[in-house]
Design a protein around this nucleic acid. Structure first.
Lengths: 196, 196
DNA sequence: AAACTGACTTACTAATAAGTCAGTCCTTTC
DNA sequence: GAAAGGACTGACTTATTAGTAAGTCAGTTT
């Protein structure tokens, strides 16, 4: 049973890497089964359709994100630390082997995706934006962030920027990611020392 | 001869829309030939491989971009007008029917792309970043833009932000694009009246 | 009039795609 | 030790993929 659950997790991990580095239409069941030494049908056993696989990946990511942001949503977070945590998450963990976050990976293929995948993607993004909006609101209220305009717009901008930077970095090199992260900090009036 | 050239242009236009709305792996030769009422092989006649099609689309876009930025690169451009022009291009023309710019469309699929396509994508992005860096440099020198840090980093950030916003807007609605564009202006100290 | 060219079509291939299903192995439970 | 169920495998199907080879045919050149 341990070994069997293992297979499911291995499939999920492999598909996660593939989806987030090549997009939804850029990998096949074979790309998952072959390196794991299992059959195509085994993947279908755990995830009947490709959409199920994508939804599971998105939901898992949403769980990870939720864990990370829980402290802040519970009201005990320092906005600067939260933002730094998210930037760090975006630039390192979330970017292993040049992968993107699931939203970034799916948004290019978005209009060719099965409906349930689109719904899951929207859910993830909404949750992320809600959280980021709160970080921006409280960050400014507490005098830690400096920006004009609505917190919701600033939040969208930060998320868009990190997503775009992740993709730019795939094309023109990793330094772009760090440059952009530094610039986000500068714009908010934070000390940009972390700019690698 | 006019009608024949027409076919090639129609193929290019159709493929352009498909590539930029569904990604490189999200459309097939059939998706091009069927609506045009021609055969698959006719597409192959004009563009032997799918990579040739993608490269042609990127190069065409690069030409459009070059036309738009030529005045500035020649030294007769107002930085604010140039930036506004690019933002407007990004939010409207370049976004018709929820399409992305080719770099955005390709970056998600990037590591599954044929080498020539990757090279063309890099070329387009480099050119765009070079131009945007100059706009940022001169904009600040002329006291029109307000930002800290290197112009090259600011340029990367602006391009990343617009690309990310375009993709976010596909997932969570067009308003995100306008919110983000407004925020870019505010961060630069520009009057954000154009925020739709 | 003959040869040639550009722009196709018809008819194909080999590979790969997602997905199905009957059967088998292994473990746990009664 | 028999039954049951979860976790697969083997052997498919059907559809689609990018790409090719050979032929057609109107128009242009020689």
């Amino acid at each position: 049973m341990a070994a069997q659950t293992d297979t499911r997790e291995k499939i999920l991990a492999t598909a996660d890497r593939l989806l987030r580095s090549r997009g939804f239409n850029g990998f096949s069941y074979q790309d998952i089964s072959r390196p794991l030494g299992i059959r195509n049908a085994a993947v279908h056993y755990h995830f009947p359709a490709k959409a199920d696989l994508a939804v599971a990946i998105i939901e898992k990511f949403r769980g990870i994100l939720r864990d990370r942001t829980a402290a802040f949503m519970a009201g005990h977070g320092d906005p600067v630390a939260q933002l730094e945590g998210f930037i760090s998450f975006s630039t390192t963990e979330c970017s292993l082997e040049h992968t993107m976050c699931p939203v970034g990976a799916l948004s290019a293929d978005f209009f060719s995706l099965p409906e349930p995948v689109r719904v899951a993607g929207r859910r993830l993004l909404d949750e992320l934006l809600t959280w980021m909006t709160r970080v921006c609101t409280e960050g400014r209220e507490q005098g830690r962030f400096r920006f004009d305009g609505e917190p919701a717009a600033k939040a969208r901008q930060i998320v868009a920027t990190l997503q775009g930077a992740r993709q730019l970095a795939r094309v023109c090199g990793e330094q772009a990611m760090h440059d952009v992260a530094g610039q986000i900090r500068r714009d908010l009036g934070l000390d940009p020392i972390r700019n690698r």
